[in-house]
């Protein structure tokens, strides 16, 4: 099977010039969006406009930290979007945990779970930065540079495995069969580790989790 490539030409141009976003306003990053939308920065001039449902959206905005609980919803929403779809990680929290770097309950690296196309650094990023990011995304899409959804599809098992480490993917994935399979594997692995449970092992496992999470 030929490798899937992001569209270029008319399709790419149209996709770049008409980005409909689904904001997942989990963290404080959301407050930076209104200025971007309204008269000062006016993102609509680039054809970017907010949408209500993932079915209609092309771009998923993760605006801030994600707890495990919200991650489940984010993954589901992402999987419900039509292709092509892009993800922008918003602020430090999505890059490395940011100020939540030692939280037991937030994820630290978003791209372990979802294929992030673009990060916007900062805590919080200024609207100018956001506009800059949008511009880069648009340019990249036109040239067919961003291929997050293709990566996600190709490495689905890896993503699912990572997700399965911290959440019950069976319930939250669209592809039930794969989720079931991966979930069973992960559980099996986890069971094995706990069977040979010595204290170092458990520590080791805990470290791995913290690395993942």
């Amino acid at each position: 099977m030929a490798k899937e490539r992001p569209p270029k030409g008319l399709k790419g141009w149209a996709q770049g010039r008409s980005l409909w976003i689904l904001q997942f306003c989990t963290g404080c990053g959301a407050v930076e969006l209104p200025p971007v939308m309204t008269s000062r920065y006016d993102m609509e001039r680039f054809g970017i406009t907010p949408m209500a449902t993932p079915r209609q959206a092309d771009l998923l905005l993760i605006t801030g930290y994600l707890t495990v609980k919200t991650l489940k919803r984010v993954i589901r929403s992402y999987e419900q979007m039509g292709e092509p779809k892009y993800v922008i990680g918003f602020g430090s929290c999505t890059v490395n945990g940011g100020m939540y770097w030692d939280s037991y309950n937030t994820i630290k690296r978003l791209d372990l779970y979802l294929p992030v196309d673009l990060y916007i650094a900062g805590c919080m990023p200024r609207p100018e930065a956001i506009i800059e990011a949008f511009n880069r995304l648009i340019e990249g899409i036109k040239q067919g540079k961003f291929n997050g959804w293709i990566r996600y599809k190709e490495n689905l098992r890896w993503y699912k495995r990572n997700q399965a480490m911290i959440m019950d993917i069976r319930k939250w994935s669209i592809d039930k069969k794969l989720a079931e399979e991966v979930w069973r594997e992960v559980q099996e692995e986890r069971r094995k580790i706990f069977e040979q449970a010595t204290v170092p092992h458990v520590y080791e496992y805990a470290e791995r989790i913290s690395e993942v999470g």
Binding site: K72, R73, R76, K171
Partner: peptide, 14 residues
């Protein structure tokens, strides 16, 4: 898609 696969603000499809 399955009939339960609807958009419910990210809620799961039980």
């Amino acid at each position: 898609v399955h009939q339960y696969d609807t958009f419910l603000a990210g809620e799961a499809d039980e």
